[in-house]
């Protein structure tokens, strides 16, 4: 009986500790990144079917502004997002090499399907395919960090 109590107590402690948000270690982060790039994030070979032009880029920026800015900021680089570095894993800057290394098809896949267990949600159906492909262009042409200010929701 005593042994069972001890076992349950240890499990409870483990669970509580496991729930706590903490930054992933260097090894964990590198392994997770490699797994995402090479294994779990699909659609590597699909090319962006939308013809690039200034209007499409504007549409992509507008679509990004619908709700991506809540986590990624207006500039895609987390400017003004108060919790970006406090999430586990932290919200990445979309201008970072780790993100830009994804192919266009993979970026579309991530926006469509999200990434578990990070906070990245699936947006398939919430946004149209054309809007998502336009957003991929926006992610490839992000403005200078901080140049667009902070999302309005965090400035009140």
């Amino acid at each position: 009986m005593r042994l069972v109590s001890l076992f349950l107590g240890l499990n409870a402690a483990l669970l509580l500790t496991g729930c706590k948000v903490s930054h992933p270690g260097v090894v964990e982060a590198k392994v997770a990144l490699a797994v995402k790039h090479e294994l779990t994030v699909g659609n590597k070979d699909e090319r962006n079917p939308v013809q690039f032009n200034a209007k499409v880029l504007t549409s992509g920026k507008e679509a990004f502004g619908h709700y991506c800015i809540a986590c990624h900021g207006l500039d895609g680089q987390n400017t003004g997002v108060p919790f970006a570095t406090h999430m586990s894993p932290p919200v990445p800057s979309l201008a970072s090499a780790d993100i830009q290394r994804y192919t266009d098809g993979q970026l579309k896949w991530i926006i469509d399907n999200g990434i578990a267990p990070s906070g990245m949600p699936a947006s398939h159906g919430i946004l149209s395919d054309k809007e998502i492909w336009s957003m991929v262009y926006y992610i490839r042409h992000l403005p200078t960090a901080g140049s667009l200010g902070e999302p309005e929701m965090y400035t009140h």
């Binding site: 679509a63 619908h66 709700y67 947006s123 398939h124 159906g125 919430i126 946004l127 149209s128 809007e131």
Partner: peptide, 13 residues
């Protein structure tokens, strides 16, 4: 044609 003004979770469809 597609709704062009974001209107919520079913906007994309």
């Amino acid at each position: 044609g597609q709704c062009s003004s974001f209107c919520g979770e079913g906007h994309g469809s």
